[in-house]
Computed example of a mutant assay.
Amino acid sequence: MQNNRKITALSPTGSMATPIPASLPNNTNSEDDEPRPRPQGSSILLDASSSKRKSAFLPYRPQSTVLTNLQRGNTEATFCPVEVSLSFHERAGQGEITEEQVKTELQRQHHIDFKDAHGFTPLHWAASYGQLAAAHLLLAAGAKVDSLAPDFVTPLLLAAAGGHNEIVRLLLERGASANHMDIVGNTALMYAAAGNHPHTCSELLSRDLDFSATNENGETAYALAVEQGSHLAQTLLEQYMMAVLTTGAFGSI
């Protein structure tokens, strides 16, 4: 059954947010995805002109417009008279927060889970952009691992979608729900499988999760991996299923 739910989540810039790309600049713990063609005739990829989200399994994430080519290391340094002012959320997304800054925000906000204009916490930003050190600082300050952003998106879902397996492991160790579903019924494993992140899939499969869970389109994590041509994740999931059938347990892969 096709999902007809309309999603209107906005980016911090105020424009319609876009899905997480397969690869991000300066993510030290993201996995390298193998090149794969865009799937044709997908039941969950919608027309670009549609008001619905283009992908029912990729969540929206905080969008930062302040990461310049200079910051990415793509150009030589030049003098810039304009000082760029970043919010605490944006600094968390760039991994540029310190323990002192966290303490200052705690005194100002009384808790570290204060949300930006579009409902994302600093931990959502850090998880989405793969900033492990920032995630550690925020969790030490009491950040909730299962804090909800629009569409019921948690930090774990964002980290899984980006293939940030170290952050996925950290969040799971701190009690994040591996079986949590977003507004259209997608789990972290579905995000990781569709995004072709086998190491992230492995982290999630080491937990007590429902491998057979389906989203509102009736698709499992394995079905999404096959549909999206995510061959690395597909192979990992097939090995997992074979291990379950033959030994009843999933060993290291």
Rank of each mutant, 00 (worst) to 15 (best):
A192I: 02
E227V: 00
M242D: 02
F114S: 12
E31W: 08
S42N: 03
N196S: 10
E166A: 12
K144G: 13
P25L: 07
Q94N: 08
F88W: 01
Q234I: 02
I253W: 05
Q94V: 08
F250Y: 15
P19K: 04
L137H: 04
S85L: 11
H118F: 11
N3R: 07
M181Y: 05
E90G: 05
N165Q: 13
K144H: 15
L123G: 04
V84W: 01
A117C: 08
Q71P: 09
N29I: 07
T187V: 07
A249C: 05
D113P: 03
L70C: 07
M242K: 01
N27G: 04
A133R: 09
N74E: 15
K115V: 15
Q234W: 06
T28A: 13
V168Q: 00
G185E: 04
A48E: 15
S49N: 14
N196T: 04
Y129A: 06
L170Q: 00
F57Y: 13
A22H: 13
N165L: 06
S202Q: 15
G14Q: 11
A77S: 13
H118A: 12
Q71V: 09
Y60G: 08
N196K: 07
G93F: 14
G93L: 14
P35W: 06
H197L: 04
A161Y: 09
L138N: 03
Y191H: 15
G248N: 10
I97W: 12
S64I: 14
A178D: 07
T65N: 12
G130V: 01
F57D: 11
